[in-house]
């Protein structure tokens, strides 16, 4: 069955607009191609996708080699905000960009919900 990219796009867009302090989100394939995105202006979708894939694969490798097990989430905390990668099953990875004001607990909960919704569309 074909993936409903339109629906994915809407889910991402809703997520970005409805969640406070979230600036953007992208859903990408594990080999680094965009599936759907709602990103701040000036960010190149293709590049963001490739970076997400590289980071996730490295993270998973670290999890494996350093006996941390399967990776649920990869977290980049900078002085201007967060970049959070979450696995969405075998076929997709979700990247969420949030600013430094974001409350981490709320953010994680919102991401969890979005992932559940995305997984429904993907399957």
């Amino acid at each position: 069955m074909a993936i409903n990219t339109e629906k994915l796009g809407i889910v991402l867009q809703n997520f970005v607009t409805a969640t406070s302090d979230v600036q953007g989100a992208a859903l990408v394939t594990p080999d680094g191609l965009p599936l759907a995105a709602s990103l701040p202006g000036g960010m190149d979708e293709e590049r963001v996708s490739a970076m997400s894939a590289a980071m996730l694969s490295l993270g998973e490798r670290i999890g494996q080699e350093l006996a941390r097990g399967g990776v649920d989430r990869i977290y980049v905390e900078g002085d201007k905000g967060y970049g959070i990668l979450t696995s969405c099953g075998e076929d997709a990875v979700l990247l969420v960009l949030a600013d430094q004001k974001a409350k981490q607990g709320v953010l994680m909960l919102e991401i969890k919900r979005a992932v559940a919704e995305i997984k429904l569309i993907l399957n």
Binding site: T29, P30, D31, G32, L33, A50, A53, A54, M55, S57, L58, R61, E65
Partner: peptide, 22 residues
Amino acid sequence: VVDTDRQATDETSLIKQKTTVA
């Protein structure tokens, strides 16, 4: 080898199944 292979979904898949991403 520490590899970071992923299933290829772009035109790469015409040449091979897996591709290095990092």
